[in-house]
Structure formats: C-alpha cells, structure tokens
Deep mutational scan, measured.
Amino acid sequence: MIFPGATVRVTNVDDTYYRFEGLVQRVSDGKAAVLFENGNWDKLVTFRLSELEAVK
C-alpha cells in the first residue's frame, strides 16, 4: 500500500522517470503525486498507482 510520505520507485519502463525514486505527496483516484528532488530542482509528477512500487 502506498501512502503520503512513502518513498516510491517508478516501475513503468516506458516512462521518462523509470527507476527514479521520490516522495509521495498525495494519493487519490488511483493516482499518486510524487515529488522528485535533485540538487537545485524539484518536480511533482502524477503516476497511476500501478506504475509505482514502495521502496523498502
């Protein structure tokens, strides 16, 4: 189960963010908004829950 605050990895091989890890900001309607941070940039991207896996 994916909840806000969880760290997730993108599993969709066709996505630009494949294998990126980010922090879930919100979850609704089968989608999750994931925040990616890297140095001087932040990006908030929405994914279907089926495209994400929780990082242990």
Rank of each mutant, 00 (worst) to 15 (best):
24 V>R: 00
16 T>Q: 14
4 P>D: 04
17 Y>A: 03
17 Y>W: 13
45 V>F: 05
39 G>E: 09
11 T>R: 08
2 I>K: 02
13 V>T: 09
29 D>W: 06
38 N>Y: 14
6 A>N: 07
7 T>F: 11
17 Y>M: 08
27 V>W: 02
41 W>K: 10
49 L>R: 01
44 L>K: 05
5 G>V: 01
32 A>F: 03
50 S>Y: 08
54 A>K: 08
8 V>I: 05
15 D>L: 08
39 G>T: 09
55 V>I: 12
15 D>W: 04
47 F>M: 07
25 Q>N: 04
37 E>Q: 14
47 F>H: 03
36 F>A: 00
30 G>M: 05
19 R>G: 15
24 V>F: 01
14 D>R: 11
56 K>F: 12
54 A>L: 15
18 Y>F: 09
23 L>Q: 09
37 E>T: 14
35 L>M: 08
27 V>D: 00
1 M>T: 11
44 L>H: 05
6 A>R: 06
6 A>T: 11
14 D>T: 10
2 I>F: 07
35 L>H: 07
23 L>E: 08
49 L>T: 08
33 A>Q: 14
44 L>I: 12
22 G>F: 03
2 I>P: 03
8 V>K: 00
56 K>R: 10
7 T>I: 13
5 G>D: 02
49 L>C: 09
40 N>D: 12
10 V>Y: 00
52 L>G: 00
31 K>Y: 15
21 E>A: 06
53 E>G: 04
14 D>M: 11
8 V>E: 00
47 F>P: 03
45 V>S: 03
18 Y>N: 03
7 T>N: 06
40 N>Y: 10
56 K>Y: 13
17 Y>C: 07
38 N>G: 11
12 N>G: 05
14 D>E: 12
56 K>P: 13
29 D>N: 11
24 V>Y: 01
34 V>N: 01
22 G>P: 00
47 F>C: 05
49 L>Y: 06
32 A>E: 00
33 A>R: 07
30 G>Q: 05
26 R>P: 01
14 D>P: 03
16 T>P: 15
26 R>G: 09
31 K>R: 11
9 R>Y: 05
47 F>D: 03
37 E>R: 14
43 K>V: 14
18 Y>T: 02
19 R>N: 15
56 K>Q: 13
39 G>K: 08
41 W>P: 13
13 V>L: 07
55 V>F: 06
26 R>S: 15
50 S>F: 08
16 T>A: 14
55 V>D: 02
8 V>P: 00
53 E>R: 06
52 L>C: 03
56 K>C: 13
3 F>M: 10
29 D>F: 08
42 D>R: 15
35 L>A: 06
6 A>Y: 08
32 A>C: 07
18 Y>M: 02
19 R>I: 03
48 R>M: 14
10 V>R: 01
21 E>Y: 09
45 V>K: 08
11 T>D: 03
40 N>S: 12
36 F>E: 00
21 E>K: 08
36 F>C: 03
22 G>I: 04
35 L>Q: 07
52 L>Q: 00
9 R>S: 04
56 K>L: 13
14 D>W: 10
24 V>M: 01
37 E>I: 13
5 G>S: 03
32 A>L: 02
38 N>I: 14
44 L>E: 13
38 N>C: 15
50 S>T: 10
13 V>I: 10
40 N>P: 12
46 T>N: 09
23 L>P: 02
24 V>E: 00
23 L>N: 05
24 V>H: 00
